[in-house]
């Protein structure tokens, strides 16, 4: 008898002899009965028309219902935009520069991430990137500040007059309207002004007034005088002295019949306005009047 002969028997594929042999076997009657019984079996009812209708109703005809999911897609779109905005603003806020600003008659001290120190004189502003500090030590400066820079990578101070680059030292930068002065107190400072680099060893200054480089004498002491509450000037036009006076005391200074380009050498105290006014008026041979927050300087021969 061949392999799977029962299957062959069911599909009428047995040869005459094989069929004969099988019919003579003991089990044949049982198999014949099985064949008969199973031929009358039925599966549960299945109405293919109904099933097709259901399919069309629920899945095909109502396909536009899929489109009704669009509000969710819109919501997703809005959510994506919000997510991007949030992520973007988070990133922006994170990279936003740290900013320290002082007003008139106000000073401040800033300690940078690498323990470098910055002392901000009145009416000044610095900004730097705290996140990126380790990669790039750069300070944007408006106004005047004294720097004590910790040793490390190149440290730069960017101003609209030029750039000051150092490795580790103490120096003062004053960057005012028409006035740019860098004084090195320790180490070596490199100043780039109008694309020209100047090296400043300790105890020297670099001064630019109205775009003109002016040679200066050696600064006194190891700190800028303003750190000791004094503003010192050496051959500086009076108008810058007045401007400094306005900043230090938050007053309004005006002058009458005075040539404010006259050079002034001297200093004034930053804590006592009367003392400061005397310190300016005496060497410059001028007179002054105080009216509230207003100070008027006038020449000795001006009629009042």
């Amino acid at each position: 008898m061949q392999e799977n002969y029962l299957a062959k028997w069911l599909s009428d594929e047995l040869s005459e002899e094989e069929l004969q042999e099988f019919q003579n076997s003991e089990a044949y009657a049982s198999y014949q009965k099985l064949k008969d019984a199973t031929s009358s079996l039925k599966a549960p009812d299945f109405n293919s028309e109904k099933a097709l209708q259901r399919l069309k109703d629920e899945h095909i005809e109502n396909a536009p219902k899929v489109i009704s999911l669009n509000p969710f897609k819109k919501f997703l779109r809005v959510a994506a935009v919000i997510a991007i905005l949030l992520a973007g603003s988070y990133f922006y806020v994170n990279t936003l520069n740290e900013k320290v600003t002082t007003e008139f008659a106000e000073r401040s001290e800033v300690v940078l991430p690498d323990n470098s120190e910055i002392f901000l004189n009145v009416d000044s502003q610095i900004s730097y990137s705290e996140k990126n500090w380790d990669n790039k030590r750069n300070i944007d400066l408006k106004g005047e500040a004294f720097f004590k820079v910790a040793k490390g990578k190149k440290f730069t101070v960017s101003t609209d007059h030029g750039t000051v680059a150092v490795l580790g030292t103490q120096f003062n930068v004053e960057n005012r309207k028409g006035f740019f002065e860098v004084t090195c107190y320790e180490g070596l400072v490199s100043v780039t002004h109008n694309n020209k680099e100047s090296k400043l060893p300790a105890g020297t200054s670099f001064l630019v007034i109205n775009g003109k480089i002016i040679s200066t004498g050696t600064p006194d002491g190891t700190l800028p005088s303003w750190m000791n509450n004094e503003s010192s000037f050496e051959s500086i036009p009076l108008k810058y002295v007045f401007a400094e006076l306005e900043r230090q005391f938050n007053v309004k200074v005006s002058s009458e019949n005075i040539d404010t380009n006259l050079l002034f050498t001297g200093s004034f105290n930053n804590t006592d306005l009367n003392m400061a006014l005397k310190s300016i008026s005496t060497p410059s041979q001028t007179h002054y009047k105080i009216d509230g927050d207003n100070v008027l300087f006038y020449a000795g021969n001006t009629l009042q």
């Binding site: 392999e3 799977n4 002969y5 029962l6 299957a7 062959k8 069911l10 089990a27 049982s30 198999y31 099985l34």
Partner: peptide, 20 residues
């Protein structure tokens, strides 16, 4: 097809054995 024939054969055999 051979695998199906095998299944048919075994199915018939098991059914008969189970019923008898």
């Amino acid at each position: 097809v051979k695998a199906i024939e095998k299944r048919m054969h075994l199915a018939l055999k098991s059914l008969r054995e189970e019923i008898d």
